[in-house]
Write a protein that binds this DNA or RNA. Structure first.
Length: 418
RNA sequence: UCCCCGAUAGCUCAAUAGGUAGAGCGAGCGGCUGUUAACCGCUAGGUCCUAGGUUCGAGCCCUAGUCGGGGAGCCA
């Protein structure tokens, strides 16, 4: 329940005293009757018979007012902002999204697999890792000896996971379709409206899936969870449409009702070159698309979600399957208006020898990936997967512009309070 | 990490050309009221982010720093 109005008649016991104690932020216990409300925007209200103040909130010091606050201010009050209507609505939408995500995969008999949060794996690769240690850093700072991780808690260097993909592949090549859904950590010094140091990621991994199957699943996934939330959070989405983003419902309907546009990186480059649009960064085959290019495609050219595939091999990860052209890999990114990349995925390289070659090309040591390579050495199978950022999806569905407002307790560079 | 912008009352902001600060909202008091981001009147409320510097004099100019915001990169 988002809120309800209590009507207190002056005949309620201790009326005057109670009214002096009740201000914005106070908590009360009410006994009364639910009645049809003559007011606008609500069906019912409670007519109080007795009223008790459980906790007062001194209006001289209580930080929240009845009127709107800036999101910047509210971020400094992360312990109180869930009490505001906007953050209550975000919490409900986030909850509904999580339920929809599990529903989607459970309905398709995907196994929910918990991959580790602490990892000693050297093959993380996806970004800067937060180190996990019990070593006494203050003491070590004074000694000049090189760090010896054999004395550390795990006996080797450990960190927080940047992705559950590689472990997901272990289960996908064993038990069938799986997904992971949990916190992910990136120690990147990213200061943007769509990056967090701690965020939640959904990562399905499917044996026998090739890139087209992967895209079909990703598209169906996004459209289904958006549709679910449209159904379960109707009132909250109407609120966001009214207060936050006037085009919200229209853009969500657009996602649910239309097929995503699919095109290759090479086709995208061609469209951008022919667009006549002047970009800050030049377009050239081989270099990664800039934000402005992705935004042009999804917000101006197609005005719809777009799935880009088959990126140049040189700009993508070692584990993505090489195409026969020798230049591109079976990668896919799902781009949506307002947010940009919401999903990144690929068909994985399942050929043992090719994978080793790719590692060497990327200056990686195959020995560090021994168990990942064994998945190819023994009973290898074509497989694919992708990762969806939960907070970016909350941004998409709520229209909130800053990702720091889409997670209860945001962690960003220089900021980890509460 | 790079580029740009900002920091003044509890909040959101203003302050002419450098002459030591104002408004709206909120709060307190009073009035009014089927209201829901109500309305009317009065009152209180400020270490102008920090540290230096220039100047007779700095909220305003200069230097350094801290924090916040936007954009870029990294990506989800």
């Amino acid at each position: 329940m988002a809120n309800i109005q209590i009507v207190v008649d002056a005949s309620v016991p201790d009326y005057l005293m109670l009214m002096k104690q009740i201000h914005t932020g106070a908590s009360v216990a009410v006994v009364g009757q639910i009645k049809e409300s003559p007011g606008k925007g609500q069906r019912v209200e409670i007519h109080a018979e007795t009223l008790k103040v459980l906790g007062t909130a001194d209006p001289a010091t209580y930080p929240l007012q009845k009127k709107g606050h800036s999101f910047e201010f509210l971020r400094e009050k992360a312990h109180l902002r869930p009490r505001t209507n906007t953050f209550g609505a975000i919490a409900r939408v986030r909850n509904a999204l999580c339920a929809a995500i599990h529903d989607f995969f459970q309905a398709r008999e995907f196994l929910y697999v918990q991959t580790p949060i602490i990892t000693t794996s050297d093959c993380e690769g996806a970004g800067q890792v937060f180190q996990v240690t019990t070593l006494d850093l203050a003491r070590l700072q004074q000694s000049k000896a090189a760090l010896d991780y054999s004395h550390d808690f795990f006996g080797k260097k450990a960190g927080l996971t940047v992705s559950g993909q590689l472990e997901g592949e272990i289960f996908a090549t064993a038990v069938g379709d799986v997904y992971t859904f949990g916190p992910t950590f990136r120690a990147e010094n990213s200061n943007t409206t769509r990056h967090l140091a701690e965020f939640w990621m959904v990562e399905p991994e499917m044996p026998f899936y090739e890139l087209d199957d992967n895209m079909d699943l990703a598209e169906s996934f996004v459209r289904t969870i958006v549709k679910d939330v449209l159904n379960t959070c109707e009132a909250d989405l109407a609120f966001f449409n009214e207060r936050i983003e006037p085009e919200l419902l229209k853009s969500l309907a657009n996602i649910v009702e239309h097929d995503f546009i699919r095109l290759t990186y090479t086709e995208a480059v061609s469209i951008l070159e022919k667009s006549g649009h002047s970009f800050e960064f030049p377009i050239a085959w081989g270099s990664d698309l800039q934000s402005e290019h992705e935004r042009y495609l999804t917000e101006q050219h197609f005005r719809q979600p777009v799935i880009l595939t088959d990126y140049p091999r040189a700009i993508k990860s070692f584990y993505m399957r090489s195409n026969e052209d020798g230049k591109t890999v079976r990668a896919m990114d799902v781009l949506v208006p307002r947010i940009g990349e919401i999903i990144g995925g690929s068909q994985r390289e399942e050929r043992h020898a090719v994978l080793i070659d790719r590692m060497r090309d990327c200056n990686l040591n195959p020995d560090d990936y021994w168990w990942y390579l064994e998945l190819r050495q023994y009973g290898t199978v074509p497989h694919s997967g992708f990762g969806l950022g939960l907070e970016r999806t909350v941004q998409l569905v709520t229209g909130m512009t800053n990702i720091r407002d889409c997670i209860p307790f945001p962690r960003t560079p220089k900021s980890a309070d509460f």
